[in-house]
């Protein structure tokens, strides 16, 4: 099965729920389990939240969400044109956060890496960040 979608939206936090619900609908054709849907939703929520909170901070920008279904795998890309990440390896460390105010957990990338099979981050300071994530879906919903 092959399918492809893309969507862009402004960087307001109401769109976090919108983005994760869109991806949940898009992946339904793969016959995922509830647990797989929740994994992908959570990972997308993390990446979109990062784009809005850290990428654009208080400025308004555009977040792009695109996804490809290839066989039983879903590949998801979340792209912002925000401030970028200076040190991607450091940002991926558990509990690391630049958001000193507002009780941030620093767990975003850890959650993405736990819930997806692979997570890649491409970032350039002052140009933006792209997160590319993939997950193979078991086609197991019927067995639940």
């Amino acid at each position: 099965m092959q399918n492809k979608m893309s969507l862009s939206f402004i960087s307001i936090s109401q769109n976090e729920a919108f983005a994760r619900n869109v991806i949940a609908s898009f992946m339904l054709s793969l016959n995922p389990t509830l647990s797989e849907i929740s994994d992908v939703k959570t990972a997308v929520s993390e990446a979109v939240t990062n784009a809005i909170v850290h990428g654009y901070k208080s400025e308004m920008g555009i977040v792009e969400l695109s996804a490809v279904i290839d066989g039983q795998s879903i590949h998801i890309e979340i792209k912002d044109g925000g401030v970028g990440i200076e040190n991607v390896d450091l940002a991926k460390e558990p509990f690391f956060t630049t958001g000193i105010e507002g009780e941030r957990s620093g767990m975003g990338f850890t959650v993405m890496r736990t819930f997806m099979d692979s997570v890649d981050v491409i970032s350039k300071v002052n140009e933006g960040t792209t997160v590319i994530m993939s997950k193979k879906i078991s086609n197991g919903a019927d067995k639940e």
Binding site: R20, T42, E103, S105, G106, M107, G108
Partner: peptide, 13 residues
Amino acid sequence: SFMDSTGIGMLLG
């Protein structure tokens, strides 16, 4: 029905 790492931060606080 849903919680992400922002929720973790809030709970820790």
